[in-house]
Amino acid sequence: MTAVRAGAAIDVAAVGKRYGQRRGSANVALRDVNLSVQSGEFVSLVGASGCGKTSLIRMIGGLAPYSTGSITIDGDPVRGVPKRLGFVFQDAALMPWRSVRENVAMGLNEISKSLSKSDARSRVHEQLELVGLTKFADYYPRQLSGGMKQRAGLARALVSAPSLLLMDEPFGALDAFTRLRLQEELALIVSESNTTTVFVTHDVDEAVFLSDRIAVMSASPGTVKEVVTVDLPRPRLRRQGLLDNRRAAELRDHVLRLVMEDQDHQHGSGDQDPDSVGSNGVRADEVPTA
């Protein structure tokens, strides 16, 4: 990989976001969001569907404007897309007319001038290998499964060794095994590089495994409710060891409780929705009694 650069530092201060004023009142998606991410840090965003995770990550990436407050990256207010950004979209977003290889190579566009052709080729090859798509390099996206598309999108985001990596549910469409493997790969990449990462997920276990801190968001209007520090030792390279780690279980339980509190609050009653437990990727029998 390339020389270790300092990752970007993000500061989100009192940010609000409202969407179009159609049908009477404005749709407030985010209100008074505060979050700062240090250089090289890995922060996960978890929260109920619709609480504004995608909105927040898009604003950090300069893809959508914020209505109030300020977002700075390395001290500079975000106006447009910041330098050296990698972005994994919730729906892969591959160009249907480009092969997998060409789609991944697109991630090198910004730094293509400083890169020789053979360098670029070997970087793309390296990434394809990492996500296990070497054999499918010349396929078109329509010939791939959903999970394969997502992996190609991941490779495109990683190929330039970005200083800021924004990921919107990158592993959402993957099967359990590939998911596990890519989580471990990502953990390795993040521990080796200095990339700052903001990672949206619904899977609390995944968040605990990967993150330095987890920002739990609540809905309507969306805001960061609590930031949980994951005080597990690093490097954490195996999911295996973490599954039966006591502290990890406690953290997961805590984060889950925060998310579900919010959902119960939203539903206006205390009764538990068994589906919401499943959708967080944790089986009920896994949750230890505190």
Binding site: G61, F87, A93
Partner: peptide, 14 residues
């Protein structure tokens, strides 16, 4: 053109 593809172009500085 899907908005997400335009976004890809913006992220990678087309």
């Amino acid at each position: 053109t899907p908005a997400s593809l335009i976004d890809v172009g913006r992220v990678y500085k087309f």
